[in-house]
């Protein structure tokens, strides 16, 4: 996973509440057993007038020429609610989104972001609106700088502090792979499991194919 320290980019505001994962990646767009090939289906029902024919909706923010290359998304409350599909994050990632700023996130979506090196940062809605208004004035020129080392956003006046948990911050900064991290605790897990099976033998199911 790519570490994320400082990211500067063009901003796309999508200031709706409850943007769900069906909207981020409609179920029809998950066509292959793969994490790839999803960027094109990102927000397909909003982004295209006809999702099958891929006719772009000129009014949708990610299609606006002045928002070209957007890599920071501004969202409303309860961002990423709905289905747990990680495809939503893979689609955002492939499209080039690195940071999402929203008042709050669905817990599973939030974890999926971190697992894929995307920063889900919490910021009160009024502050998000202000940032959006500032980028409206000159979308290509007014880029935001998101500094994960200091948990601050620069651009549009005084830097604002955003909220991200300590553990998530470190994972993103180092680009840590979870499995590798947990492998270092294998002995502790084994000991825990031994105790659990000893105390509650019913927890353990028989091994083998003819179960």
């Amino acid at each position: 996973m790519q570490p994320l320290t400082v990211h500067a980019g063009v901003v796309a505001p999508l200031l709706r509440a409850n943007i769900d994962t069906d909207a981020i990646i409609p179920s029809r767009e998950m066509r292959r057993v793969s994490r790839q090939g999803l960027g094109e289906g990102l927000f397909a029902n909003w982004r295209y007038l006809d999702p099958e024919l891929r006719r772009p909706n000129p009014d949708f923010v990610l299609n606006r020429p002045e928002r070209a290359g957007a890599s920071i998304l501004l969202g409303g409350p309860n961002f990423g609610c709905g289905s747990s599909r990680e495809y939503a994050v893979w689609a955002l990632d492939e499209f080039g989104i690195r940071v999402i700023l929203a008042p709050d996130f669905n817990p599973i979506f939030h974890k999926n972001c971190v697992a894929n090196g995307l920063l889900p940062a919490r910021l009160p809605f009024p502050a998000i609106r202000e940032l959006a208004a500032w980028t409206d004035r000159d979308p290509q020129g007014n880029r935001l700088v998101v500094d994960l080392r200091t948990s601050r956003i620069e651009g549009g006046g005084t830097p604002v502090a955003f909220d991200v948990s300590g553990a998530d911050r470190i994972r993103l900064l180092r680009g840590l792979d979870d499995i590798a991290l947990t492998d270092t605790r294998a002995a502790v897990i084994e000991a825990f499991e031994r105790n659990r099976f000893a105390a509650h033998p019913w927890v353990r199911l028989p091994e083998g194919a003819d179960r």
Binding site: E86, V89, I108, K111, N112, D178, T182
Partner: peptide, 10 residues
């Protein structure tokens, strides 16, 4: 708990 695909791998 409902989880994501990366978490499932983990």
């Amino acid at each position: 708990f409902g989880i994501g695909t990366s978490e499932l791998q983990h």
